[in-house]
Design a protein around this nucleic acid. Structure first.
Lengths: 206, 206
DNA sequence: CCGCCCCGCTGACAAATGTCACGGTCGGTT
DNA sequence: AACCGACCGTGACATTTGTCAGCGGGGCGG
C-alpha cells in the first residue's frame, strides 16, 4: 500500500492541549489524517455525521456524554466506524463497558506514544486492541456487584452528602438510603461509605 | 532571529502518551527542540544536570516528587533554568505554590495547543506566563487556612480511614484527631470530613 | 514578660452512621 | 403456584463522628 487513501481520524478529548498534541503526534504518520477534533462527548455524533471518519479516538472522561456513551451512539448509527477508547485511568469496569458499547480498542494514556498509531491501524483493520494487564484486571474485578439503586446511591454519596441529602435527592426514605449504603459497603468490602466510594470508583463501577 | 540556537526543552509527564504527543507538538516548531523526556519527578533533577535545558516543562501530578517539589530542586541548583508548569487541574493553591517554588509559568491542559509554544518562548524570554482566570481564582481562594497538622490529618483522611486509623498512623490520640478534623471542617465550611477533603483538594490545599 | 496561636490531650454530649431484623410490593423464573 | 431477588420502608441498636469546654506546654512577636 504505497499511496492508498489515508485513515481518517476523529479526535475527542476535553483537554485542548492533549487534543492538539495527539493531533500533532498522529499527523506525523503518513497514512493517518485527523479530519476533526471535538472537546465534548455531545459533539461526537454530530461530528461523525459530518466527517465520516474511519476511526474515532474517544477519551472516556469528558463533559456531557462520556466516551462510552458516545461510543454506543456512534456504533448504533454508523456500525462501520471503529472506536478506539483512550483514557487516563485503567479502570477495569471502563474496559468492560467500553467493549460492550461496541468499542474496538482500549488504550491507557501511559502506553508508549509510538504504539498509538499502530493501535489505530489495527483497529482500522478490524482487529481488537486491548491492554494486556488491564484485560486481566478486568477479569479479576469482574462486573459490578452493585444493583442499580446501590450504584445510584453511591454516586450521590460521592460528594460527601449526608444520608438526609441523598434521601431528598433520590426521593427515598433515610432508612432505605442507609440500607443501600450498607449493602454497597458490604459488597465492596469497605468499612466506610468513603472507602466504598473509592473502591467502586477504582473499579469503574460508578 | 533567523537561525539562532533552538530553545532546549525538558519534558516531564507520567503519561507516556501525553508526553510523546507534547513532544510531537513542540517538535513541529522550528525554534524548539525537546532534548529529554522523563516520566517521574525524581528523574527531573538528574535529567537537568545531564542535558541542561533552557526550559523545563513539568506536570504537577507525577509519581514520586510532584512537579512543584521538582521545581524547587531545579531552581535551587540551576537558577537559570526556567520552569513551566503544565497541569490537568486548575487548583488555585497549585499556582501559588508553583510560583513560590520558582516556576516562571503555569499552563492548564485545556488551553489551546497553539498557545503552548508561545508560552515556552515567553518563559524562555524571562517573562511570566499565567492563566488569567486561574490567577483571579488564586486570589479569591487565598492561601490555605489549615495549619500543618490539620492538613496532615486531612491527607490521612482522604482514603476514608477512620479516626482510629488516622490516630494510629500519626501517633496521635483519637480525640486530637477529631479536634483537628473538626477545625478543618470548620475552616473549609464543610459539613463533613468528606466534603472538607473535597474542597481542600479542589483548592490545592493538600 | 505577656498575649497569642498552634499543638496535644481529656471528657462529655448530640448527631450521624452502619447494621440488623422484619414486612411488604413487584417482576421474572422454575 | 411457589420461589427468588431487587426494591422500599420501619424500628431499634451500637458505633462512629463532630462539637465544645477546658487544661497544659511551647514558640514567637510585641
Amino acid at each position: 500500500m504505497t499511496t492508498s487513501a489515508p485513515i481518517r481520524l476523529l479526535l475527542a478529548d476535553d483537554q485542548a492541549l492533549v487534543r492538539g498534541a495527539l493531533s500533532a503526534l498522529l499527523g506525523l504518520e503518513a497514512d493517518l489524517e485527523v479530519v476533526c477534533e471535538v472537546a465534548s462527548g455531545d459533539a461526537v455524533l454530530e461530528a461523525v455525521r459530518l466527517h465520516r471518519p474511519d476511526v474515532a479516538l474517544l477519551d472516556v472522561e469528558m463533559p456531557g456524554l462520556d466516551g462510552i456513551a458516545a461510543t454506543a451512539l456512534v456504533r448504533k448509527e454508523f456500525p462501520d466506524v471503529r472506536v478506539l477508547i483512550v483514557t487516563t485511568f485503567g479502570r477495569p469496569g471502563f474496559l468492560r463497558r467500553a467493549m460492550q458499547a461496541g468499542a474496538s480498542g482500549f488504550v491507557v494514556k501511559d502506553t508508549p506514544a509510538a504504539q498509538l498509531a499502530d493501535a489505530v491501524r489495527r483497529v482500522h483493520a478490524g482487529l481488537r486492541v486491548v491492554d494486556a494487564t488491564l484485560a486481566t484486571d478486568s477479569l479479576i474485578a469482574g462486573e459490578s456487584p452493585l444493583t442499580a439503586r446501590e450504584t445510584e446511591v453511591l454516586q450521590a454519596a460521592r460528594d460527601g452528602s449526608s444520608v438526609a441529602a441523598i434521601a431528598q435527592k433520590l426521593f427515598l426514605s433515610e432508612g432505605t438510603v442507609r440500607n443501600h449504603l450498607s449493602a454497597a459497603i458490604g459488597k465492596t468490602q469497605a468499612a466506610n461509605r468513603a472507602e466504598a466510594v473509592l473502591t467502586a470508583e477504582g473499579n469503574g463501577w460508578l
